[in-house]
Each structure stands twice: as C-alpha cells, then as structure tokens.
Amino acid sequence: MTIDIPFIITCFFEIVTALPLTLVITVIPLIIGFGIGVVTALMRIYKVRFLHRIADFYVSFLRGTPVVLHVLIIYFALPLLIAKLSDQFGWGIDTASIPILVFVLTAFSLTAGAYMSEIIRSGILSVNQGQVEAAYAVGMSTRQALWRIVLPQAIGGILPNLCNLFIGFLHTSTFAFTVSQMELLGKANVVASVNLKFLEAFIAAALIYWGMTIIAERITAFLEKRVTAYNRGGIA
C-alpha cells in the first residue's frame, strides 16, 4: 500500500478552503429549519384543524425518504415551478440565473425542518404542564407562556439532540456534492482527480469532518452544563 502521507497534509490545506461553504450549507438550513420546526411542532401539538395533518405528513415523509433524494428532487422541481410561475405572472425570472446553492439550501432547510419538528415537539411536550398552568395563573397569555416559559425550558432539554442534528447535517451537507457544489467533499473530489490520488484526498477530508465533529461535541458538552445549570440535581 502506498499512501503519500505528506500529500495528505497538502490536500488538507487545499480542501479546508471549502470549509466555509460546508458551514453555510450546514448552518443556514438549521436556522431556517428551526423556524419551520417550531411552527409545525406547534401545529401538531395544538392540533390546528387540517394544518396538523399536512404537518404530520410533511414530517413523516421527509424523515422517511433519503436526504439525497430531497436535494435531487428540489434541484429538478424548483426551477420548473419557478419558470411556470414566472411565465404565469410575468416576473421574467430566468431560472438558469439562480445559483444552485439556493436549491441546495431550500432542500436542506425543508429536511432540517422535518427533523427539527420532531425534536422541538418532544422538547415542548417534556416541559412540565404545571409550568404552563403557573404561567396562566400569573396572567400570561398563551403566547407569552410559550415564549417566556415553555420554549426556553424546551430548548435546554433538547440541546443534546440539536447538537446531534448539527453533526448529522454537517455530514448530510456532503450530498450537495451530487449537484456539483464545491463543498468539502466536492473539493476533495477535485483535488483527488487532479492529482490522481483519491485515497489521500478523502483521508484529508475525513480528518476535517472528524475534527469538526469533535469540536461540536465539546461545545455542546459545555453549553449543556451552562443551560441546565438551574436544574442540577445532587449536592454542590
């Protein structure tokens, strides 16, 4: 076996330049997904007429299909849809001018929304019902009780899940490569093909992902301690 170890280091520094794009593809969908997740989770908890069925199907369908298909379907479907709407209303949008990144972010946001919805729902349901009753008793409206009492506690409880989702999406972002985005894996592939050293390039990429994952795990462990500080059992 001939592994060119110095070349792994060269690859590492070349591939790491794609890290910002990978982080964009990871973080932006998670932020948008969090919004989608809160809305759909509330719809499902309060059983909003008709809408909660749509939310249920949305969550179950996106969690039941491979993410790589979401990327590909949005990549092919959204331009068609936009072109059709644009013709109808005369917006004059040329779908070829929309960067592919927009489709990738849309797909990942929808996926993140479905996974977030489940996590947030479990978080909200785990907050003690007495907390809500106490909030009502001091005269808060439902909205105030949700924002000031329930959600902060729910987020503290689901922090480990959110971290896992971040790591999951860091890894999922590699699927952007299937629609030729130059994120870490795309870059690794280019570096590999140019130098004809595939193994070295992918080892370097793997090391970057591994490092990122370990950093994310450390940060969560720290945050978890801070966020649940009010609620620690035991002595001291």
């Binding site: 972002s173 590699t174 699927f175 490569f177 894996l185 992918f202 793997a206 591994w210 994952t213």
Partner: peptide
C-alpha cells in the same frame, strides 16, 4: 461517527 457515510464509502472504495 465523526465522518459522513459518503466519505466512508469513498475511503473503502479506494482504500
């Protein structure tokens, strides 16, 4: 657990 499965696939395929 720290690397994407797509990368693992390529690592095994070439490695």
């Amino acid at each position: 657990r720290g690397t994407p499965v797509l990368i693992q696939l390529f690592l095994v395929f070439y490695g």
